[in-house]
Amino acid sequence: MKAALITFPGSNRERDMRLALTKVNGGKPPVDVWHGDSVLPEGIDLIVLPGGFSYGDYLRCGAMAAHSPIMREVKKRAEAGVRVLAVCNGFQIACEAGLLPGTLMTNASLKFICKDVNLRVETTASEFTKKYRKGQTIRVPVAHHDGNYTLGADDVKRLEDNDQIAFRYADPLGTVSPETNLNGSVGNIAGIYNAKKTVLGLMPHPEDATDPVCGGLDGMGLFESIAESLS
């Protein structure tokens, strides 16, 4: 697998993401790409947009980063079928760039949320989640102020009908309810795919659940799924 890791001014999870990708890729690290670059290396299998506060989250989160020079190439490669993993601020950027539907608004509590949360795996019919079980509950961290996923009711139904919902916020037993919706996201949605399931965006941080010393290994299934699919 040949991965490219995009870094923006204000990214702060790129090192964590690099460690996770390197771990599942036989010690081979991703190629580092700066937001001001205009091209990606040839042969890239996976593009990763990491978490952080790109451009200081001015205007809307991800709005400025979506117009970085490198994003023109990211969108071009994504349209050609290259896989894209967009986490937290990366998810915001992907939505702003039109790679995924919807937008991420301020948390319903109006507060920054930093804690471990439970996610229910909604589908395993994906190169990103095939190592999990459908309905499995995993526990990973979140750290965001603007994670309230917002989309119209008709579009949400379209996501459901097309099996494009990847994860929902849930309790440890996998029950989805208003009480487990930590940020106000429509339908408790924590992560979604594009129509072809080649782009995955999610607010939680699976890269920070890939080492027992740091709290758990529940995020490894995602990275192992990607590595197995693209190797």
Score class of each variant (00 low, 15 high):
Pro178Gly: 12
Ser54Met: 04
Trp34Arg: 14
Leu173Arg: 13
Lys131Ser: 07
Ile113Leu: 13
Ala108Ser: 13
Glu42Lys: 13
Pro41Cys: 13
Arg15Thr: 02
Thr123Asn: 12
Val84Ser: 05
Tyr149Glu: 08
Lys131Gln: 11
Glu179Cys: 13
His205Thr: 04
Ile138His: 00
Thr137Ile: 12
Arg133Tyr: 00
Thr103Ala: 12
Ala143Ile: 08
Leu222Thr: 03
Phe53Asn: 08
Thr129Gly: 03
Met203Phe: 07
Phe112Glu: 11
Leu151Cys: 07
Val39Gly: 00
Gly43Ile: 08
His144Lys: 02
Thr175Leu: 14
Arg120Ile: 15
Lys111Cys: 12
Met105Lys: 12
Tyr58Asp: 06
Asp163Cys: 15
Val199Ile: 14
His144Gln: 01
Asp155Met: 09
Ala97Asp: 01
Ala20Ile: 09
Asn89Arg: 03
Ser38Met: 15
Asn107Thr: 04
Ala170Gln: 02
Ala63Gly: 12
Ala80Met: 05
Val84Gln: 06
Lys134Ala: 12
Glu122Arg: 09
Val31Ile: 15
Pro206Arg: 05
Asn118Arg: 00
Ser229Ile: 03
Pro30Cys: 08
Thr103Asp: 02
Met1Gly: 06
Val87Asn: 05
Asn25Trp: 09
Arg18Phe: 06
Val48Ala: 04
Arg139Met: 11
Val84Tyr: 05
Phe91Lys: 01
Ala66Leu: 01
Glu207Pro: 01
Arg158Val: 11
Tyr149Ala: 05
Arg15His: 15
Cys214Trp: 15
Arg77Phe: 07
Ile47Ser: 00
Ala94Glu: 01
Ala108Leu: 13
Gly81Tyr: 13
Ile113Trp: 10
Ile165Ala: 02
Gly135Trp: 02
Asn181Ala: 07
Ala63Tyr: 02
